[in-house]
Simulated assay, not measured.
Amino acid sequence: MSSTATVAQATDTLTVFDWSGYEDPELHPAYTEKYGEPDFAFFGDEEEAFQKLRSGFKADLAHPCSQSVVKWRDAGLLEPLDPSKLKNWEEILPGLKSMKDLMTSADGTAWLIPFDWGNTLLTYRTDKVKAEDVQSLKAFADPQFKDRVTIGDNVDDAYALASLAIGLKDWTAMTDDQFKQASDFLRQVHKNVRFYWTDNTQINQAMAAGEVDLAWAWNDTATSLKNDGVPVDVNKDTDEGLSTWVCGYVRLKGAEGSEEKAYDFLNAVTDPAVSKYMIESWGYGHSNAKGMAAIDEATLKSSGYDNVEKFTGNTLFQSPMPSEIRQKMIAEFEKIKAGY
């Protein structure tokens, strides 16, 4: 095969660097219909993804969340988006578009197109746990749940839990004393942790099998398990609140795949036809305002997406934080998981 043919073949592919589970064809049906499935590579959390990309891993698109976009951009990992090639750009929910530094930088350059948004929240087995025992996030450190707890192997979700537990809803302003309080709380939680989950399949199987009773999990866990008839519920009204996040897709600098396919994929995941499936099967909100508006009120209400203001109220939003705070969290979380 000639070198020209080899290059042509390489640039005709598309590699998406993503969270496990998002390879679900129903999340990008228009792309699948046109091309078949893209190649997927997976990461467990955004720090892992960041380090892998900095080490030279090549992909065309990636799926970071709100707290990481600025860091990835400033590290030179991102290629600006061309809104003229994003057919659903004008349909993105206004509340997501207006979030500082999430989609665009001060000069108006677009870096991310939002896709999914939701919560990390207290999730529990209703047949084994009394609702009154999980009214506070401090339940994660309650000795009665020893070896019955799981939280994500994810520094952002872990410190979102810890920040809320100590009464802090803006982690960008975390003081040294608050960092110590949050870390001490996670050390208490660690005593109860059966395992740190790394993907939705792992946590869903563990809760379904009765291996764990209490989880700090994304909306998908309760949605999927309820659809399967497992007795689980979430508490969105704990004393301390819950965490809210927004994630989306970015183009990666140095991408070697097809630019046309990259934009076709971005248009497919933000298509309004995806909105209802995302809510019903994943429990997440979709970024397309037109698609969300077309969903029947009963479906929206059952998932909590009928009132966005209430949905995002009493939450810690996982916004970009100063790099020095994040680096402290990363280092400390590794110690905590190791039992130190």
Rank of each mutant, 00 (worst) to 15 (best):
residue 141 A to I: 05
residue 141 A to K: 03
residue 141 A to Y: 05
residue 142 D to A: 13
residue 142 D to H: 14
residue 143 P to W: 14
residue 143 P to I: 14
residue 144 Q to N: 11
residue 144 Q to M: 12
residue 145 F to Q: 07
residue 146 K to E: 14
residue 146 K to R: 14
residue 146 K to H: 14
residue 147 D to T: 08
residue 147 D to Y: 03
residue 147 D to S: 02
residue 148 R to G: 07
residue 148 R to Q: 13
residue 149 V to D: 08
residue 149 V to Q: 05
residue 149 V to E: 07
residue 150 T to G: 03
residue 150 T to K: 00
residue 150 T to Q: 00
residue 151 I to Y: 00
residue 151 I to N: 00
residue 152 G to S: 08
residue 153 D to I: 09
residue 153 D to F: 11
residue 153 D to Y: 14
residue 153 D to M: 12
residue 154 N to G: 11
residue 154 N to W: 10
residue 154 N to K: 08
residue 155 V to M: 07
residue 155 V to L: 10
residue 155 V to R: 08
residue 155 V to D: 06
residue 156 D to L: 02
residue 156 D to F: 01
residue 157 D to W: 11
residue 158 A to N: 07
residue 158 A to R: 05
residue 159 Y to L: 09
residue 159 Y to F: 13
residue 159 Y to K: 14
residue 160 A to L: 05
residue 160 A to F: 04
residue 160 A to C: 06
residue 160 A to I: 04
residue 161 L to W: 06
residue 161 L to Q: 03
residue 161 L to K: 09
residue 161 L to V: 05
residue 161 L to G: 06
residue 162 A to P: 03
residue 163 S to I: 06
residue 163 S to Y: 05
residue 163 S to T: 09
residue 164 L to T: 02
residue 164 L to K: 00
residue 164 L to R: 01
residue 164 L to G: 01
residue 165 A to T: 00
residue 165 A to N: 00
residue 166 I to G: 09
residue 166 I to D: 10
residue 167 G to K: 01
residue 167 G to P: 02
residue 167 G to W: 02
residue 167 G to S: 03
residue 167 G to L: 03
residue 168 L to V: 09
residue 169 K to C: 08
residue 169 K to E: 12
residue 169 K to M: 10
residue 170 D to P: 02
residue 170 D to R: 01
residue 172 T to I: 10
residue 172 T to V: 15
residue 172 T to K: 13
residue 172 T to D: 14
residue 173 A to N: 11
residue 173 A to V: 14
residue 173 A to W: 05
residue 174 M to L: 15
residue 174 M to A: 13
residue 174 M to W: 10
residue 175 T to D: 15
residue 175 T to W: 15
residue 176 D to W: 07
residue 176 D to T: 07
residue 177 D to P: 09
residue 177 D to F: 15
residue 177 D to V: 13
residue 177 D to H: 15
residue 178 Q to T: 04
residue 178 Q to G: 06
residue 178 Q to M: 09
residue 178 Q to C: 06
residue 179 F to D: 00
residue 179 F to M: 02
residue 179 F to N: 00
residue 180 K to C: 10
residue 180 K to W: 10
residue 180 K to N: 12
residue 182 A to D: 01
residue 182 A to E: 01
residue 182 A to V: 02
residue 183 S to N: 11
residue 183 S to Y: 07
residue 184 D to W: 06
residue 184 D to H: 13
residue 184 D to C: 08
residue 184 D to Q: 11
residue 185 F to Y: 12
residue 185 F to W: 07
residue 185 F to M: 11
residue 186 L to T: 06
residue 187 R to G: 15
residue 188 Q to A: 14
residue 188 Q to E: 15
residue 189 V to D: 02
residue 190 H to G: 05
residue 190 H to E: 14
residue 190 H to M: 12
residue 190 H to Y: 12
residue 192 N to L: 03
residue 192 N to M: 02
residue 192 N to Q: 05
residue 193 V to H: 12
residue 193 V to N: 12
residue 194 R to T: 04
residue 195 F to C: 13
residue 196 Y to R: 03
residue 196 Y to Q: 04
residue 198 T to K: 15
residue 198 T to L: 14
residue 198 T to P: 15
residue 199 D to I: 10
residue 200 N to W: 13
residue 200 N to T: 15
